[in-house]
Computed example of a mutant assay.
Amino acid sequence: MKKNLVTLTDKVVFITGASTGLGEQIAYEAAKKGAVVILSARRADLLLHVKATCEKYSGKKAYAFPMDVSDPEQVKQVITEIYQTVGVVDVLVNNAGFGHFEEALTFDMDIAERMFRVNVLGLMYVTQLVAVEMAERHQGHIINIASQAGKMATPKSSIYSASKFAVIGYSNALRLELKPLNIFVTTVNPGPIETNFFGIADESGTYLEKVGNYVLDAEIVAGRIVALMGTARRELNMPALLEVAGKFYMLFPRIGDYLAGNLFNNK
């Protein structure tokens, strides 16, 4: 497999949504590999804790920039500051996002708009600004955290799935556009991960218990993501059961609808 980066040592890895959950674990795994880690999220207090831990793992200075990806002016300001204070970005991980499980007919559309501004438009704002600089150097790797929900939608995930379908579609076209510039684009499609994501998404508090057989460990997922940094890997799908189900869904959509509405309907 073609390598863009030989090693992560001293490479700059910029992670959005890095204050908790999967983003936090990606930051730790990258720091353990010797990367210079840049962290962003809305919660400055949590970022400082992650920053200190990254510095302990890497023995290098890490950076924390509070940022709301849904605010394009704030994104521009922060990324300009990153270039001025840290330098170029070798790997961008677009991890910022949130979900909310509710039926489409009763979904609060203010939440839907916010979700698209964070999950989709925010990812696009950050990507465009970072990719322009990568294009000048003809080198870089963009990793977009999507979801198995963007492969196979299930009841009560209509809005969240729509946002992740958008991320996958954007990533697929972006990959083709940036390939001649030697910039890799990888889409990561995890199933449910045991993080605080579900504290917001699942008001019932029972979803993770219902899907316990294929709940992922954030540290393991983060390790897989960091291991593919600098490679031309197109997608990472986890767990294997949902990867197979997603392919089955595409090949046999009627049966896929049955599975999505019954076997995988746990919200």
Rank of each mutant, 00 (worst) to 15 (best):
K2N: 14
N4R: 11
N4H: 14
V13E: 00
A18V: 07
L22M: 11
E24T: 06
Q25W: 11
I26T: 03
A35Q: 02
V37C: 01
V37M: 00
V37H: 01
D45H: 05
D45V: 05
L48V: 04
T53W: 10
C54S: 04
K56M: 13
V69F: 11
D71Q: 06
P72S: 08
P72R: 04
E73H: 11
K76A: 15
V78A: 07
I79G: 04
T80W: 13
E81S: 14
I82T: 05
G87L: 13
G97A: 10
F98N: 05
H100S: 08
E102F: 08
A112D: 03
M115D: 02
V130P: 11
A131W: 03
V132L: 14
E133N: 07
H141A: 08
H141N: 09
I145G: 00
S147H: 06
A149T: 08
G150I: 01
G150N: 03
M152S: 04
Y160T: 00
A162V: 03
V167E: 04
G169T: 00
A173S: 15
P180E: 15
N182K: 14
F184Q: 08
T186K: 02
G191D: 08
N196P: 10
G199E: 11
D202P: 12
E203M: 09
D217Y: 03
A218S: 14
G223V: 05
R224D: 15
R224M: 10
A227Q: 06
A227E: 11
L228V: 15
A232N: 15
R234F: 13
N237A: 10
E243P: 02
A245Y: 02
F248Q: 01
Y258I: 13
Y258Q: 11
N266V: 13
K267W: 14
K267Q: 14
